[in-house]
Design a protein around this nucleic acid. Sequence first.
DNA 1: GTGAAAGCGCTAACAT
DNA 2: ATGTTAGCGCTTTCAC
Lengths: 347, 347
Amino acid sequence: MSGQKNSRKKSSNSITIVDVAREAGVSYSTVSRVFSDFEFVNEDTRQKVIDAANRLGYVVNLQARSLAGGRSNIVGLLAPGIDNGYISEIVKGIDQELAFANYDLMLYTTHRYAGREAYYVKTIANGLVAGLILIVPLITENYLKALPTQDFPYVLVDQTDSTRSSTTVDSTSWQGAFDATNYLISLGHRRIGFITGLTQLSSAMERLDGYRAALEQHHISIDQTLIVEGDYETAGGYNAAGKLLDLPTRPTAIFASNDLSAFGALDAARQRGLGIPRDISIIGFDDIPQASLVYPKLTTIRQPLIQIGHVAVRLLLEKIEDPDKEARRVTLATELVIRDSCAPPRQ
Amino acid sequence: MSGQKNSRKKSSNSITIVDVAREAGVSYSTVSRVFSDFEFVNEDTRQKVIDAANRLGYVVNLQARSLAGGRSNIVGLLAPGIDNGYISEIVKGIDQELAFANYDLMLYTTHRYAGREAYYVKTIANGLVAGLILIVPLITENYLKALPTQDFPYVLVDQTDSTRSSTTVDSTSWQGAFDATNYLISLGHRRIGFITGLTQLSSAMERLDGYRAALEQHHISIDQTLIVEGDYETAGGYNAAGKLLDLPTRPTAIFASNDLSAFGALDAARQRGLGIPRDISIIGFDDIPQASLVYPKLTTIRQPLIQIGHVAVRLLLEKIEDPDKEARRVTLATELVIRDSCAPPRQ
DNA sequence: GTGAAAGCGCTAACAT
DNA sequence: ATGTTAGCGCTTTCAC
């Protein structure tokens, strides 16, 4: 009765395969067979085992199974956090597809150990998890080099490593940006501001390139003062939009590299008393759920977030099945979603 | 080269404690000691082991550790999904506190096996996970009764079981609703519509009671037509608000039981050409991140979501340390957050 | 088709 | 302070 913590060490209170074997009157490897790959077990024996297991309330210990079997049914997700529509939509897709394949999900957040990414990943990948999905903006290499073996299964979401040799899912950033810009031009805009993403990210650069290409195609000269740096965050978008809106000749439209920045731009415009889309049109990128929640509802380029999650899982499972499988990159199509935040410019 | 899947069975490519022992010239239990509880290991030996481990790149296999040790450093979270500001904020808090205690997180979504909750929970709780955090609106009992032992550690978030014997975190629903209603009354409103949550949930009923109590205190009679059923979802809020707004004498304010429903109410009002808060005031509950994103920014009752996550973890860890610890319930304070969606009624 | 036995990587008595 | 020896609950040869 004295306060010892964590006593009852080996209180293996749980029912094991051995208990079931005894109850069913068979050897415990037979029980194992019944509960694993249904090899050639006699139908009678199987039924006896199943009955015994039900009677006892047996459920398999996944832990022990994967230790002994050398494989697990758990996939790890490494992401900065899930408190952001972009990632949580992808996670939704991942979860759906995982459920389908009967896998479970471990959630690992980066930032947990600044500077110790390598150790963190090593630990993650050692034992518990059969493969890893990485949604890690920046320093992807730090994580990758820590993988235990050359062919430990992993897939990158919306990100490339420098050697481009990783299995990857992403979407058509360039085309999406091109379409967005094009749409604005078709509305009659000529002075279109651009808020960049994190410039270290390939996807961010592709969006910038798409923007430029659309302008060039319409023989609109590129004005460097209309391109301001953002960081894919709302606050960054707010600041960047501020610069744009305080320009001597204000742009009539702003293309933000993602929805989060676009939300910041919305705020910045409103704060200056500008009507959206009356005085300024704003378009985003991603189409996270919040995009249709803001007012006015945001016109944006849709990334198929949930589908990205699906594909990530499917690619990972492929790799887990066959680690020698060569790296693939699948790029999903983006799509313009017209809502209420864009209109022709006022003359 | 023929397509066999999952070959190379026991490719125990990883470095184990045995390898380190050999490299360091000590027995492998010494290595175990060094990497676990630092018992009384000679400083020299320890250093030798650490060096050897570093040279080899050893990391502990958590799987094996917990099988052998009979405990794990993983906590399971069972929730409907994470694609909703309410839950993802709580998860953020959970993750932070877990990182602090050096635990990892498994994410289990309900809906995965409709009708097989019991089996699902049994499997989850068998081995892998040291304890469970449940954010499961409805049928909590179905989950609870499947727990492997009487004292398997778990905590309930914002929910009570019928016997009220579970360890629980929640916040002051009644008081919050009282405050919200009071605020509206202080602004001069007398006809205040109420959109309920899921009426099976205790928190939803407490909010309704709080609303009623505030009206009574101000001698405002309760009009049943002003109380309409919602379901904590945006669409439900939209429909409920529609009924309220189409009433012969429209309320001048609406109190929605959570922010998601409030967003629906916002839409319904806008669609009828009503200005917010000019023609109708709307107040929510929760203060999820999106609340300050909608336009006008939503006035609401703040639940300390992140802190709820922190507390959930701390309570769970307590239970894991000492499963006999008696159940506790901690209730955190809500707070009125005034933004732009409420104003005095027009005469 | 089924049982016996080894072993996955580790912890935890029990010795010494 | 360190080594020896059983297991944890399961999968997987290898016999029969």
